[in-house]
Nucleic acid binder design. Structure first.
Length: 346
DNA sequence: AAGCCGGGGTT
DNA sequence: AACCCAGGCTT
């Protein structure tokens, strides 16, 4: 009780003025929460404005094409969020008569809405007493209460969820939840938290034991996979090129890229031609292949490092249907491709 | 339970 | 280079 009271008063004095804090519209809160999944406020905010402008209501979003949504989402990453966003919007319009769900149980049925997001929307928009547990909450609670169960273990998730729900101010879950996250984002930060000016320092277990650096506990780190991508940048005499859509599983699903030859190690012009001979792409024998970048471009994802070579293929006619560079610029592409296009400057 | 899914900021 | 970010889905 004292904890929640202190927390909420800290929040009311220190909270940032963010665009989604001036609305009670569950559609807008939902949109902001999806955008902010694993994404910093500073990175997500421009996208929030773009989406609200392009799709002021859930009906507008439901009617858009998937390509339009992906193009607006371009650069934000985790593209399944964009696809799920639209699936959920269409579900709300077609199955719920355009009325957004107003409780946790129904919210979590939406594609892309998990325990965290359902709790956030339910508490913020409808004052339902359900505690959120995100990265901030793990950090703040583990430190103040000295909980050293790994936050990415099943036991840890259960434990932190129970703790948050016991602490929750059931009369004001909106400010409690946002306050806990805001406190983690602004004050109890991962590195160098502001302990000398902390309203909880007298009771904080980590501070009293000088163990801030050791909490929260997180199990192992995933090792990074290294991949070698070779993009064939076709350029015809008509100044057209080839982009194709990534399908199936894996990264960048639904986005467009140049024809890709992936190799197990760094490719040379010789073995690249051999790879092609295996039937991926037929490069017209009359065409000239030039390596654009001597040193591979390293594109780093959280779980993969992609070493990339761009091969310029000048040819009279394209081996398949091509598009102009102007059209290519309108398609959603990974940041890796976007940066190349900007550099190459057709 | 573990693996996969982006891009960028911070240290 | 490692860690983290208003996590969720698939296997």
């Amino acid at each position: 009780m004292l904890f929640s009271k202190n927390l909420i008063s800290w929040y009311l004095e220190n909270k940032r003025d963010l665009p989604w804090r001036s609305t009670g519209d569950p559609y807008r809160i939902w949109l902001s929460e999806i955008i902010l999944q694993q994404t910093r406020v500073a990175q997500g905010t421009p996208y929030y404005y773009k989406f609200i402008e392009a799709f002021p209501t859930v009906f507008d979003l439901a009617e858009a094409s998937e390509e339009e949504v992906l193009k607006l989402w371009q650069g934000l990453g985790y593209y399944s969020r964009a696809r799920n966003l639209q699936t959920a919007a269409q579900f709300v319009v077609e199955d719920l008569d355009g009325k957004f769900p107003d409780n946790y149980k129904d919210l979590i049925k939406l594609k892309g809405v998990g325990e965290y997001t359902a709790s956030a929307i339910a508490s913020i928009c409808f004052k339902e007493p359900v505690a959120v547990v995100d990265g901030n909450v793990y950090r703040v609670l583990s430190r103040i209460f000295g909980i050293d169960t790994p936050i990415n273990s099943t036991e840890g998730q259960k434990q932190f969820k129970e703790k948050a729900n016991r602490l929750l101010d059931r009369k004001n879950p909106a400010d409690f939840n946002q306050g806990l996250m805001e406190f983690g984002a602004l004050h109890c930060t991962p590195r160098r938290p502001l302990c000398d000016n902390c309203p909880f320092s007298s009771e904080c277990v980590a501070f009293n034991r000088i163990q801030i650096a050791y909490l929260p506990v997180k199990l192992k780190k995933q090792k990074v996979r290294k991949r070698h991508f070779n993009y064939l940048v076709f350029i015809s005499e008509e100044n057209k090129t080839i982009l194709q859509q990534r399908k199936g599983k894996g990264i960048w699903q639904g986005l467009y890229e140049f024809p890709l030859v992936e190799t197990y190690s760094e490719a040379t012009a010789e073995n690249l031609v051999q790879e092609e001979a295996y039937g991926y792409y037929s490069v017209p024998s009359s065409s000239k292949v030039d390596l654009f970048n001597i040193e591979p471009v390293v594109h780093k994802l959280s779980h993969q490092h992609i070493f990339t070579k761009f091969w310029i293929v000048n040819c009279e006619e394209l081996p398949q249907q091509g598009i102009s560079f102007t059209e290519a610029g309108k398609l959603p592409v990974p940041v890796l491709i976007e940066k190349f296009i900007d550099t190459f400057d057709f």
